[in-house]
Design a protein around this nucleic acid. Sequence first.
DNA 1: CCATAAACTGCAACCGGTTGCAATAGCCCA
DNA 2: TGGGCTATTGCAACCGGTTGCAGTTTATGG
Lengths: 328, 328
Amino acid sequence: MTIYDIAREAGVSASSVSRVVNHKPGVKPATRAKIEALMEKYNFSLNETARGLSTQASKMIGILVTDIRTIHYTDTAYCVAQELAARGYCSILFNTGASDESQCHYLQILEQRSVEGVVLIGSSFQTPAVQAAIARHLPNIPVVLVNGYLDLPNVYGVLSDDVGGLASCVALLARKGRTRLAYVRDAKTPSGQLKLQGYLQGMAACGRAGDGWVYEATTDLQAGYEATQQILREHPDVQGILYSVDLIAAGGVRALTDSGKAVPGDVAVIGVDNCLYGELCNPRLTSLDNNLLQSSATGAMLLIDRLENRDAPHQVLLPYSIVERETT
Amino acid sequence: MTIYDIAREAGVSASSVSRVVNHKPGVKPATRAKIEALMEKYNFSLNETARGLSTQASKMIGILVTDIRTIHYTDTAYCVAQELAARGYCSILFNTGASDESQCHYLQILEQRSVEGVVLIGSSFQTPAVQAAIARHLPNIPVVLVNGYLDLPNVYGVLSDDVGGLASCVALLARKGRTRLAYVRDAKTPSGQLKLQGYLQGMAACGRAGDGWVYEATTDLQAGYEATQQILREHPDVQGILYSVDLIAAGGVRALTDSGKAVPGDVAVIGVDNCLYGELCNPRLTSLDNNLLQSSATGAMLLIDRLENRDAPHQVLLPYSIVERETT
DNA sequence: CCATAAACTGCAACCGGTTGCAATAGCCCA
DNA sequence: TGGGCTATTGCAACCGGTTGCAGTTTATGG
């Protein structure tokens, strides 16, 4: 069922049907009524693909996310998709993984699909290869990078102040008299580097420059558990541990209580993200809140502003806050 | 940059360029090489929208999910999207919420986008209104309903045996000598009804027909906490509690330990979904595993089989299993 | 009742591809 | 060198819409 079918049966041209479908003026009320009746009768719904081709406006945006199962990205993707859907855009979603090759591959697919904008969710996108792929495939459409920065005229970034955030976590513990601290990092992304930097900076600020014990873990419970066991072996007198992600921290808290340490009595713990995992943790986890809701909302608005041709800042730096629960 | 631009510069017709792009035979090697060189030079990438219009194959599939933030649906959506992406399909994702109106609205949008298939993730889709909307808007393309069933020739359902699953949870507790049991349900979806039915059936099987204490909670920690407090007030001698969802169960476990009950010493607990929340819970949660990975993989394969014109069963019933951890 | 403006309506070109079919070119062999 | 084939190539129609512009109605007013 196409507008031509409707037109034929109504005894008019496709132009008139098109005008009715698009609520444009210039159609006699009687004609309009006849067309609308037929549309209703045949349950007509217009082919958006064809319309997109003709109007050069696909009304689609691409969402690339490293892995949507990461709780933090799930929420971001949800917010962005909802915000866009409310404005009539369709979201094409791809999980890219962290490899440059795959990320660039999907950027090209988005080009072929003529998306009007792109949102990149995840810290794996802040690489030269991705930057080059954007310049090559999507030089003229707005691209929003949630949590990161790329120096390209059409890329807009939302950043949280990782350095300041981590430093203030250290400061919080220092105020409670704890300066023998360890830090467990996860991915070696730019954002991960900033967090580490914030931790080291915080240590320096409380007079323990060069003393930061740094460990590594993959992003899962078990890795957090094991890294923490290692910390306890190597530094039994540790007074506080910071984790780059709540999930790892949850594993850490379990390791601490399992080995008889009181939390926060013996060892204080702080995670990052302030997600549901922190609430589930026992005792409940104190966490650095990078204000996910605001950052996704900001990312969505940045994109929408550009889509609707309003100006938008190329970088937005969001504040952080510490949500104290039971582990500090 | 279109195939016409390439054609002009190569001194050939668009047909030849099209043949080269699609790796079709019938182009002289020299011509092919010249065209390929130009494509490379201009970084040409074909407009898939136009191709879709022409070939009547959009290579897009729609994924409707009640709310992707529900951990269970996140994982399902991820699996399905990955499986489809690997076969060259784009996924259009919408969060519909549970309202019929909104669900039908998005079904219509998918029709307009000419998707080749649809995956519905969530138990909110098993309603007469959705059934009617599918019959009306998408009567000819395969629709897979993950966790549910609709009686339509083009709809394929993946179901888990909720009745049997819950009944066997009750049986497990009964074997441990616990028959004073409560059940906390969440949504009143068809699947929720089946779980309740399974619980009641299990109670009947161990000689306590009519004795099942049934409570309700929304799907969050706090609601689980409160429902459990209520259970303890009204039935202080409860020996075991089943929860329709792990997240609610986690709130329940917290309520139990907070009020001094030993878990599982005084009260045993079982959740459903076997998701990460169960691992985070302290003590770790025993959970009914409805085999998410298998059900999403099955859903994806069902759709792919139909897309590639192979036969597929209209209903697949998946087995369940109980993963015992520390709360039983 | 007619001139003139305003309101409708439809033609045709265009968006960027695909593809059946006819035309042309190139090749082999007698 | 001519005939018969096959390999290339391009024309033109089609996918399902949109839209500028010109032609046709209809309404208004004198």
